[in-house]
Computed example of a mutant assay.
Amino acid sequence: MDDGEARTRVLDAAEELFYGRGIQTVGMDAVRGASGVALRRLYQLFPSKGALVEAYLLRRDARWRAGLAAYVDAVDAPPRERVLAVFDWLRDWFEEPGFRGCAFINSFGELGATSPEVAGAARRHKEEFFRYVTRLVAAAGAPDSAGRQVALLAEGAMTTAALTGSSAPAREARDAAAALLDAAVRR
């Protein structure tokens, strides 16, 4: 197996284990077992658990944001509806088996105080998400402040869905975002 395949197998295993069980409870030996990559090779690819966690978060960020953007880009509707599509995508995500909330909030809660890499990855992910939503909201004719408010509604929906095990927060946040957009555009 070449380095690319081994790296993918390790990251796939790490993502499943870290997201499903939490970062602190999963050791490198568990990642080795789940990936089928020898421990020595795993450490050649990722010299420390911290390096693996950072790589997992960076890859998850890219995949998560790309999935959201692809969903919204496929919506052939006015800009307001594209903003609201964010919440439709969140609902679908919340309904996936094994949904445990936002991996970045989870990792920050576990390690943010002790790992600058985790804290930085979580902050960058949230900053990019807020920028993305703010661009969508601006295209709908609302001010940047409304974009940040809509993003906060999405963040609240993510946390509430994780805690309740329900996708209802996506619909509720969507309704609030629609009201917010309507009020912001009327001004």
Rank of each mutant, 00 (worst) to 15 (best):
G112C: 01
E5C: 03
Y43P: 12
A62S: 13
F94T: 03
D29A: 09
R7A: 10
P78A: 00
T159E: 05
P47I: 12
N106H: 12
V86F: 13
I23W: 02
V75E: 00
R21E: 06
L45K: 03
T134Q: 13
F99V: 08
A157F: 03
E172I: 05
Y19R: 06
T164I: 03
R148Y: 12
L68K: 03
P169L: 09
L90D: 15
A154H: 10
P78T: 00
F104I: 00
M158E: 14
A184F: 01
V137M: 03
A119K: 02
A38Q: 13
L84D: 00
H125T: 14
P47T: 08
L84Y: 11
L17M: 14
L181P: 02
Y19S: 12
R187A: 12
R40V: 10
G165R: 15
G101C: 12
L153Q: 06
A146E: 06
G33V: 15
E5L: 13
D88H: 14
T114P: 15
R171D: 07
H125N: 14
R135S: 11
G147I: 04
E117H: 14
R65N: 02
V86N: 12
K126H: 15
F46S: 11
R91G: 10
A85F: 08
R82F: 06
A69P: 04
G33W: 01
R131C: 04
A70C: 04
V72R: 10
A119W: 14
E128Q: 07
